[in-house]
Amino acid sequence: MSDIKFTRALADPDHALKPAGRPGPLGKPLVLANDGLPEEEKAWFCDAYPTASGPYKGILENFLNWARSKSLWILGFGTGCGAIELRPLMTSRFDMYRFGIQPRPTPRQSSVFVIGGYASVKTLKRIVRSYEQMMGPKFVVALGSCTINGGMYWDSYNTINAIEHYIPVDVYIAGCMPRPEALLAGFKELQRKIRRGECEGAVKYAENFEWYKANQKKVIHDWNMPDYNY
C-alpha cells in the first residue's frame, strides 16, 4: 500500500495536497491562523506568510553567492543516525574548515541544514521549525537513502519517506551511511550549485508555501505550533 501512496505523491503533487479533512487546492492559501493552538495562545505567535526575496541577478549577487558558497555554516542539529557522520568532518582527518564549513548552534546564524538520515514525524516537526527560523538564502543537504525514498524505513509507521515533500532540498547524498568523504563531495557540489545561483530553496519554499504546509500537516497530527515560525 505504501509504495502506491509514495509513487502517487511523487508523480502528482496535487495528491499530497489533499489531506483527509483539510480542503485547499493548489495555489489557494489554506487558513493559516495557527489553528492548532489553543485560543489563549494564538496571540503569542505570528501568523504571517513567508515572503519570497529573490532570486536576484547581477554582479553583486554573483559575488554574494561566491561568499555564501565559501562560508557554509551548518546547523548543529543531528536529525538522525547520519549526524554521526558529521562529527568526523571536524577532525584533522577530514577538516571541513578548509572549505569554509563550520558548525553553528543556532538556526538564526546557520545557512546549511543537514538532514541526517531518516526523519521521524516527531523530528520533522523540529526540522520544520528550525528550517523556517533560518535566514535566507538557506540550503538543505539531505544525507542518506532515508531522506530520498525512506531507505530501510520505507514502510515504517513513524518516519516520512521523502524529505523534499516537507522542505526544499538542494543536494542529496546517497548511501547508507555515506562516508565523510561523500559528505565533503556533497558539500563541494552544494558550493558549485550556490555559485551557479541554483540554490533558491527559500524562494521555492515561500512560493509553494501552501503545498509544503499541507504536506507537513498531513503527517504531523499534533500541530501545536505557529504555521510559520520565524
Binding site: 526575496s53 529573490g54 554574494l64 561568499a67 562560508s71 546564524q109 535566514m135 535566507g136
Partner: peptide, 15 residues
C-alpha cells in the same frame, strides 16, 4: 575567512 563570513552575514536577504 573572517572577511568572507562578514560578507556572507551582511548579504543575507532577510533579518
Amino acid at each position: 575567512q573572517p572577511f568572507i563570513d562578514i560578507v556572507k552575514s551582511s548579504g543575507k536577504r532577510n533579518s
